[in-house]
Design a protein around this nucleic acid. Sequence first.
DNA 1: TAGAGCGAG
DNA 2: AACACTCGCTCTA
Length: 612
Amino acid sequence: MDDSVLQSSRNMESSSSTYTDIDGDHPKAIIHIDIDCFYAQVEMVRNPELRGAPLGIQQKNIVVTSNYEARSFGVKKCMLVSDAMKVCPNMKLVNGEDLHNYRTASNKIFAVLQCWKCPVEKLGMDENFIDVTNLVQEKLKSVNTAGLAVSGHTYSEPSMECPCGCHARLRIASQIASEMRKKIFDDLGYTTCAGIAHNKLLAKLICPLHKPNDQTTIYPEHGTSFMSTLSSVRSIPSIGSKTTETLISHKIITVSDLQEAPLEVLKKIFSSDMAVRLKNLGLGEDNTPVKQTGKPQSIGLEDSFKTVSVKSEVEDKFSALLQRLLVLMREDGRIPVSLRVTLRKRDAKRLSSHRESRQAQISPSIFTLNNGLLTVTDAGQQKLMSIVMRLFNKLIDLSKPFHLTLVGLAFTKFQERMTGRSSIVNYFMNDISVQSVLNLQNDCDTSATSMDYSAVSPSSSTTTDLSDAEVEPSPKKPKKVNWIAKRRCLAKEEVASPSKLKVGELRLNSKELEKVSELRLNSRDRSLTPRASPAKDNLSDASDSMKDIEEGACEDCPSYVDKEVFNALPDEMQQELKAMWKNPAGADKPRSSPRKNKAKTNTIMKYFVPQK
DNA sequence: TAGAGCGAG
DNA sequence: AACACTCGCTCTA
């Protein structure tokens, strides 16, 4: 039985692993949603004339994707245009080299999925994971699930009831998946596929079983047997070309091979953790969480070329990259604290990899917020360039000849985004950077949902708001701080096109203005990347309205600070906060050990924590 | 913590 | 198809 295999593998790893799941316990419910032939659908939504006939999306001389009509003629992904036209002479072609519309569509879909108030993780432009575990639990409380059937296909009927209750949870999740797909179709016009499982791995892999415009649920008991139907280990997400090579060199080629490989053998090839992970993946086990997608953790650009061997040319390349990068930074709105220089030396052996990089802290004073807009003076840009070239000198010995094929520039840390309850700065924020985007474009129309258990349909769960949860009050916290993003009711069209919302928000008041400005600036326009911020392309029309924002009394304050609150603080505390903002590295560790909440003495925390 | 490597789309 | 681009995660020193 599958469980016995799981059992034995778990026992082997349990000694060194922190894995805490109980065997046979499958508490989560994960949905993976994939937009059918994404580019082609975007074009057909834009221009309905294209529907019903074969359509190909062209980039350069290649048909990168096509609609299902074209596929029925044998048009494949990444086919040469000439070959595609041979098998499908009537196919219409649309140029898809400008990704702007695709990004916009992707963000709209992401925004719709946010309506369910569950963690949503974007994977590329056309895939999303949603962890609906909590929503399912709510529904279980309020709904009799006895006669509830699965919505859509089932990979395989369960042989018996799982004692942990996952079958009922997954059935509910399948209903939620149906709702989500329906809303995406009703609001935006896109058909989708979904996979429903108790983990991300199975949800993603089961998703394409019934294509297009359908969904599939798989129960935990079939995880291992389903995985064994995959011919190559390469088809497992997170097993890429390198890992596949290594596995194959040890005669592990199919997923079945991986399942049967003893953990001790894998541990001789890989690190212990990696071996455990691989073994579990092979068996269909995966405990990686769905991570809410928000702002990117680094913003960078790179440029590749045949060869650059002169330092003045290098300087030109970096300068051009920096100019472009500063535009992106302005759109993002956050103040960077660290800068990384990357380059690739010409190497006969390896063409792609072998990048090298150096990074350095940068003084945040290079950047200033003018009327909420991130700006850099000419002197600041020169300063940045000198840092860049200093890092470049670390990488290249200029006394010897060099040949580069790529240079890159990235800002890698930001002042904003001090999340976590430990950060005192949270108490002065009037914007929760990531979640507030969610809140503002949220409030999806509940009447549109088809589910009969209205108590837990999207956005009707008014009891819990993410912003409320995030700023959970602490006993010592100063009362009455005006940080909670206001929630507003929107019509459906406004959800699909949040620009109206943002403009509306601008009419509120000056303090709200700055918050909205950050939301707007959150709207970076980047290419082909995951982690793009939601609902961005729709907001550019709000930018002109940002010109005349008043300057607050605290010139040094970061933009997220409620200046009214700041000015009400004791002078000593104001000074300390200012010092902290001047030297964020010392005060703020955004992503390090969020659990540890050490109240450092001799900081502003002493105002809130009892002293011994 | 920085830097390299792998993986994703 | 192979490569270009951008970003996240993990491992190691």
